[in-house]
Design a protein around this nucleic acid. Structure first.
Ligand code: NAD
Ligand code: NAD
Lengths: 212, 212
DNA sequence: TTACTTTTGTGAAGAATTTCACAATACAGT
DNA sequence: ACTGTATTGTGAAATTCTTCACAAAAGTAA
């Protein structure tokens, strides 16, 4: 019934999926069943109900869940019923792609500062932002009250910038650099490692062939 | 002792980590213990041994694993002891970042074709490649014997291109579009959803604060 | 050869996650 | 009000994943 601490990683991923599905319903006032939600995700109705039950019971037996209500509840559970101030560190190729990706801003992740160590890039205008020197990092993080940092810089600078971000009071890190960051356990880090995703594919293909 | 089918997703992710760690050892002829490997990953020695034991036993009691041997074995398990022919679909911001990312090629993922539907982009040269029209898709996939496809196009075109890729004989899909692709179960799909990663962060931060 | 140290490989125990299955309940129709 | 249908919320069972713990090597040193 109540938030019993320790929600599993996979549950959180599924909650994101449910929210994404619900945002597909432009429908006002409708309802959705755990069965329907399961079909759109890639899971079972029982799993959907169990996932949601960790946070309370907001369905109606015989009817399902109110789309509007469930969507709001999921937004609040996932912390996207507000906006987050994000800084981008590394104004390279992946940094640019992320910066220009509209889905971030539309979900409430607001890029309020960009840093790069390359003197050629410092001072460049990116939309409403100017690329800043890492020398200003702590000052800017504090002044703008940055909560999240996206690390899109080469691996050799990532650990240092992660530490500086934590020391400056940043609350979470999305890391694209292919290294395991060492940060205090209370600061969550999510790693994105695309080589690993490709390896997962080639693993599955290779294994599959061994069966045949 | 033998590949007993059904290796868990988390095991595969850890195998990738182990391989990445081992590639950090330029050391020729050395050995590494499960303890050391665990420290570099973010796991336990028992987990390392259990993961490896699914594929045979290639350590020496009292000594550990031969770095060279284990690295080769992991490469072969993950299917990266060969090169893979990859096509990129969608020559946009994320497509460009991926195309120029050197770690892919160096791991054996070779981008051999690029497709985009934008007439402005078709014909553009990208390094050694030329952006092609999706009209040529099936022909090119077959001629170049493409095995993997990276979908970096907007969500509304992704399902169609996934299906065409499968029909053309592609064996795996790395999908950046924020939709759940519908493909036959024997074709592995890996999804990359960055909004979900950010939501995982904001969830953890939000939850953490509720404790305090 | 024997004693000692180290570290693997693995069954068994323990923990976590998913699935099952069903009583509880909400509404619709008559 | 009653009957029928749909669908939740949730203990319990089943399954999957992780950790434990220790006998079985393998090397080293005396
Ligand atoms: N391009 C991709 O598709 C891709 C995919 C996955 C992971 N990555 C990883 O993302 C990171 C960035 O990749 P990229 O392709 O954008 O590289 P890039 O070389 O295009 O950009 C990196 C940027 O970081 C800047 N930088 C370097 N040190 C810095 C520091 N200390 N502080 C601030 N900025 C600094 C550089 O000046 C450069 O502008 C790398 O770690 C890479 O491994 C990239
Ligand atoms: N930019 C990011 O950081 C980011 C992050 C996560 C996910 N994504 C996702 O990745 C995908 C691409 O994002 P982007 O930012 O590169 O977008 P983009 O608009 O920069 O590029 C998309 C490209 O795909 C092409 N395209 C459209 N339909 C096509 C078709 N049927 N066949 C071939 N090409 C086609 C377009 O012409 C365009 O060049 C989107 O689904 C987006 O949601 C992007």
């Amino acid at each position: 019934m109540f938030v019993s601490r320790k929600i599993s990683e996979s549950t959180v991923r599924r909650l994101s999926h449910y929210l994404r599905s619900l945002e597909g319903f432009p429908d006002i006032g409708g309802t959705v069943s755990s069965e329907e939600l399961a079909a759109r995700g890639q899971t079972t109705a029982a799993q959907v109900r169990k996932d949601l039950s960790h946070f309370g019971s907001f369905g109606k037996r015989g009817l399902g869940y109110s789309v509007d209500q469930l969507r709001d509840r999921l937004r609040s559970i996932l912390g996207v019923d507000r906006s987050w101030r994000v800084a981008l560190v590394g104004a390279g190729r992946i940094g640019l792609a992320l910066f220009e990706y509209p889905a971030f801003r539309s979900r409430g992740y607001d890029c309020v500062a960009i840093f790069d160590s390359d003197p050629e890039k410092i001072g460049q205008a990116w939309a409403d932002q100017v690329v800043r020197s890492p020398d200003e990092f702590e000052k800017v993080i504090n002044e703008l009250d940055v909560e999240l940092v996206i690390l899109a810089l080469p691996a050799d600078g990532a650990q240092e910038m992660a530490m500086r971000a934590v020391d400056a009071g940043v609350q979470g890190i999305l890391n694209f650099a292919p290294i395991r960051l060492n940060v205090p356990p209370e600061v969550p880090v999510e790693d994105v490692n695309l080589v690993m995703e490709l390896e997962a594919l080639s693993f599955q293909i290779t294994q599959g062939e061994q069966d045949a």
